[in-house]
Simulated scan of single mutants.
Amino acid sequence: MYHSLIKLFIYKALLNFSNNIFLKLIPKSHLSYLTFSKPINEAKICLFINPFLYNNCRKKIKKYLNKINMCPLNIDSHKDLLDSLKVRGVIEDDDVYNTMIQVDRGKYIKENPYADTPVYICQGVTISSPHMHALSLKQLMGVLKPGARAIDVGSGSGYLTVCMAMRTEVLKNKNSFVIGIERVKDVVDFSLENIKNDKPELLKLDNFKIIHKNIYKLSEEEKEMLGLFDAIHVGASASELPQVLVDLLAENGKLIIPLDEGYTQVLYEITKKNGKIIKDRLFEVCFVTLKKN
């Protein structure tokens, strides 16, 4: 009995010691995720967390998660999601924040809507990660203004298309025109239902549309009817820059598109100046494929 009490005392002392050490490490280590063994952002090493220790200090951990450069584990609102992206430095532009805050991601996907991860919809189609939506909007902010014409290719759930509509103020600016184009009929129906439940007033406008069409199958007549666009976003990776999108891009317009490069994909910003195309390589990404069929 005496020896058991001594062992218990030693164990408790060691646990308290490790607890204090761990709490001191949290703000310095910049954990990328918090489970029982996950890599640290900068050092790219693993910090092993005692599950009993985690239970004892999870409230303090949650407080630190909102301060350092990481995505919190449990986010249950759209505002908290955007605030976390702001803390992490993903959203640096107030225009991006003010645009995204108007469109609750929870209205466009039911499974893990506030997790910073892509979510599968159906038939090989996903809704992109919130950080990708934020970064894409950031690149387009210069041309995505009230009165602008914008097209979202591979519009999926309809989330980013509606963000574009909010940014261009289609409800009160009749010169604005926003269109989402999606090749999968079931996904088109899904997005229309989402918009109907969130912002049904958009579906009554002539300058906002969601259409079922493969961008590669646009005829010359259809391209002429659509006109030119100041902002084009593509939510799927193409093997090469589609000529149809170059044709639809207005002078000084911007096109954001992921392109295949060997075994990886790279997000590009395409600008048209004096009729010529300027390609700016941004960063590596991972998207579904922009299918021609």
Results as ranks from 00 to 15, higher is better:
residue 1 M to L: 12
residue 4 S to C: 11
residue 5 L to F: 12
residue 8 L to K: 15
residue 10 I to N: 05
residue 21 I to D: 05
residue 23 L to M: 15
residue 25 L to H: 07
residue 29 S to R: 11
residue 31 L to H: 08
residue 34 L to H: 10
residue 40 I to R: 07
residue 42 E to N: 13
residue 44 K to L: 12
residue 47 L to R: 02
residue 48 F to Q: 10
residue 49 I to P: 01
residue 52 F to E: 12
residue 52 F to N: 13
residue 52 F to R: 15
residue 54 Y to W: 14
residue 56 N to L: 15
residue 58 R to Q: 13
residue 58 R to V: 12
residue 60 K to S: 13
residue 63 K to S: 14
residue 64 Y to N: 13
residue 70 M to K: 07
residue 74 N to F: 09
residue 78 H to L: 07
residue 79 K to L: 14
residue 81 L to E: 01
residue 86 K to P: 06
residue 93 D to R: 10
residue 101 I to D: 03
residue 103 V to A: 01
residue 105 R to N: 07
residue 109 I to C: 06
residue 112 N to Y: 11
residue 113 P to N: 02
residue 124 G to W: 04
residue 129 S to H: 13
residue 131 H to F: 10
residue 135 L to G: 00
residue 147 G to C: 04
residue 155 S to Q: 05
residue 158 G to Y: 00
residue 161 T to A: 06
residue 163 C to V: 07
residue 176 S to N: 01
residue 176 S to D: 01
residue 176 S to V: 00
residue 178 V to E: 04
residue 178 V to K: 01
residue 179 I to K: 03
residue 189 D to N: 13
residue 190 F to T: 00
residue 192 L to Y: 04
residue 198 D to K: 01
residue 199 K to G: 04
residue 200 P to Q: 01
residue 202 L to C: 01
residue 207 N to T: 06
residue 208 F to I: 05
residue 211 I to S: 09
residue 218 L to K: 01
residue 218 L to I: 05
residue 222 E to V: 08
residue 223 K to A: 09
residue 224 E to C: 12
residue 224 E to S: 15
residue 225 M to R: 15
residue 226 L to C: 09
residue 226 L to N: 06
residue 231 A to P: 02
residue 234 V to G: 00
residue 240 E to S: 11
residue 243 Q to I: 12
residue 249 L to A: 05
residue 249 L to E: 03
residue 251 E to Y: 02
residue 255 L to D: 03
residue 261 E to G: 03
residue 264 T to V: 06
residue 267 L to T: 02
residue 271 T to P: 01
residue 273 K to G: 08
residue 276 K to L: 11
residue 276 K to A: 12
residue 278 I to F: 14
residue 280 D to G: 10
residue 283 F to L: 13
